[in-house]
């Protein structure tokens, strides 16, 4: 556990020192605001639906911080060669993957928290003041965080599979956006696909949590991380560098 926390702390500090991370934070908050206002403009509803709309916006925009925070996890280490130093330290491969994954996930959660903090500021400017339940918003955020954990695992795995940083970032954005839209039923013609796993964030925001969705996200995260550890192990066998 100590090794995981050490690697996680080091990664968090590295990410906080990077200009790209701050751009990711800013981009995420801006994208959330843009998606939120677009949905709001096009929909007719009550202010009780605001938490669900915000969570949908967060869910779609979360691909930005996830891709930015995960692209450097392994691809950057391989480019600079530091992966060799890390992998010859007395830590095992699963500790390395978990340490890095947790760091990227923590940073994504910080980004979500930043957008969450900005939300009341958006609404403060509205007149008349809308009413919404903070508890509903929190419930919706929990779903966003659970899915962010899954997308972070996707990004971690893709970062392991590439030597360069751009391809995993682009692929993470594509996969995350496609599946987010698919799960939320935003792709026309795909409404019935994955219908069993369709996320109705409004439901979550009302407190009607569908445990199948949570189980799906958590088990997929575990599976992807397990796969990532195996990929890291296999790198020792197939790579001369």
């Amino acid at each position: 556990m100590r090794e995981i926390l050490l690697i996680c702390r080091k990664e968090c500090l590295s990410l906080l020192r990077s200009t790209l991370s701050w751009c990711a934070f800013a981009g995420f908050v801006a994208a959330t605001g843009a998606i939120f206002s677009t949905i709001l403009r096009d929909s007719v509803g009550t202010s009780e639906q605001l938490p669900a709309i915000l969570c949908t916006a967060l869910h779609l925009a979360v691909c930005i911080p996830v891709s930015m925070f995960t692209m450097n996890l392994f691809a950057g280490e391989r480019t600079s060669g530091t992966i060799e130093t890390l992998m010859t330290s007395p830590v095992n491969d699963s500790q390395i993957v978990l340490g890095k994954y947790i760091a990227a996930f923590i940073m994504t959660c910080i980004a979500i928290a930043a957008a969450y903090i900005v939300f009341p500021a958006y609404l403060a400017m509205a007149a008349p003041q809308p009413r919404y339940s903070g508890l509903s918003l929190a419930a919706g955020i929990v779903v966003v965080v659970i899915f962010a954990a899954m997308w972070t695992a996707v990004g971690t795995l893709l970062s392991l599979m590439s030597r360069h940083q751009a391809p995993p970032a682009i692929l993470t954005i594509i996969i995350t956006l496609t599946f987010s839209a698919l799960f939320t039923g935003n792709i026309i013609g795909f409404e019935s696909v994955l219908s069993a796993l369709r996320i109705d964030i409004a439901d979550f925001a009302r407190g009607n949590a569908d445990s199948r969705v949570i189980f799906f996200a958590v088990s997929t995260t575990v599976f992807l991380l397990f796969w990532a550890v195996r990929v890291l192990e296999s790198r020792r066998w197939i790579s001369s560098k």
Binding site: R2, K10, S80, G81, T82, E84, T88
Partner: peptide, 28 residues
Amino acid sequence: TGYLPEGVPLYNDMRVAEYLKFRGRLRN
């Protein structure tokens, strides 16, 4: 074992003392 890989890969964003401390803690 102490190992210095080819090309001396190090974390460029870290300071020397910070890096050595991190490596020491990683080695328990």
